[in-house]
């Protein structure tokens, strides 16, 4: 079966990361972050998701080369 799940995982989480980080930049300093103890959790976690998504992409591409 030539279906590699790492691509959809990569797509899903980089998309989520971009949405969250983008929204985090737009709302930086907003009162909505009182809930999360003053940290801009959208920006930080968006970055984590982008990194995770990219790692999945890299593994998928390396796997295809083999």
């Amino acid at each position: 079966m030539n279906f590699d799940l790492r691509f959809p995982i990569g797509i899903l989480f980089t998309t989520y990361g971009l949405i969250l980080a983008g929204y985090g930049i737009l709302t930086s300093g907003s009162a909505i972050y009182q809930k999360s103890l003053g940290t801009n959790i959208n920006l930080i976690w968006g970055g984590v998701l982008i990194a995770f998504g990219l790692v999945m992409w890299i593994f998928a591409i390396l796997g295809r080369r083999k």
């Binding site: 989520y16 985090g24 709302t27 909505i32 972050y33 809930k35 103890l37 959790i41 959208n42 968006g46």
Partner: peptide, 11 residues
């Protein structure tokens, strides 16, 4: 609902 702002909330 207590901790997560719009964005993380959706996730």
């Amino acid at each position: 609902a207590h901790y997560l702002p719009t964005g993380m909330l959706g996730l």
